[in-house]
Nucleic acid binder design. Structure first.
Lengths: 86, 86
DNA sequence: TAGGTATTTAGACAAATATCTAAATAATAT
DNA sequence: ATATTATTTAGATATTTGTCTAAATACCTA
């Protein structure tokens, strides 16, 4: 169930901030890591969880991996919430 | 930060199901517990987390505690997501 | 007041999570 | 080829989380 993975992915401030960063522009894993006071392996792990939830996509370009925001999956959460509201 | 607590509260299937139950009608803690294959103390704990996130309100009526759904706080999550989308 | 019902609190425990360091993999450049 | 850079994987550890049982609290009724 993707809703499960999305809620899990969103339940962490660092991951939510990563999404906010990617809103501005696509970034490499290294660039993302530099924005936080956390080691690269930890950021890599966060990116993996975001990827599993399909909140980001990734593309390898040479030695870099470029991450992009994918908000389409948020629609599932949105409709889940709207259903609850009405 | 309430957004934090809301995301935390929503990151559990049992708690999301509790909210869906309360969508139909207000319920006592006992009634909610009966709907799950989980002990009453565990449900009580879930209700506490939902309450901290202000996703439910509670009112004591005699020996019963009646829980109600409160979706207003979902607006914060909604606008957080909409900001991310645009 | 005593006994019963509804709910929460306390304390324990296993599983999940966020983080780290060290090592592995992959691509580039000299 | 070798060294350098970018990223991920592996393994360890402390913290958080979901669950349980047992006990405490609160209310009701006879």
């Amino acid at each position: 169930m993707i809703v499960n993975k999305v809620f899990k992915a969103l339940n962490d401030n660092t991951r939510r901030e990563i999404l906010n960063l990617l809103k501005q522009k696509d970034m490499t894993a290294g660039e993302i890591a530099e924005a936080f006071n956390i080691t690269k392996p930890s950021i890599s792990h966060h990116l993996d969880i975001l990827h599993q939830a399909e909140l980001v996509t990734s593309e390898k370009q040479g030695q870099f991996v470029i991450y992009s925001l994918n908000t389409t999956v948020l629609d599932d959460i949105l409709s889940w919430m709207i259903t609850l509201k009405k």
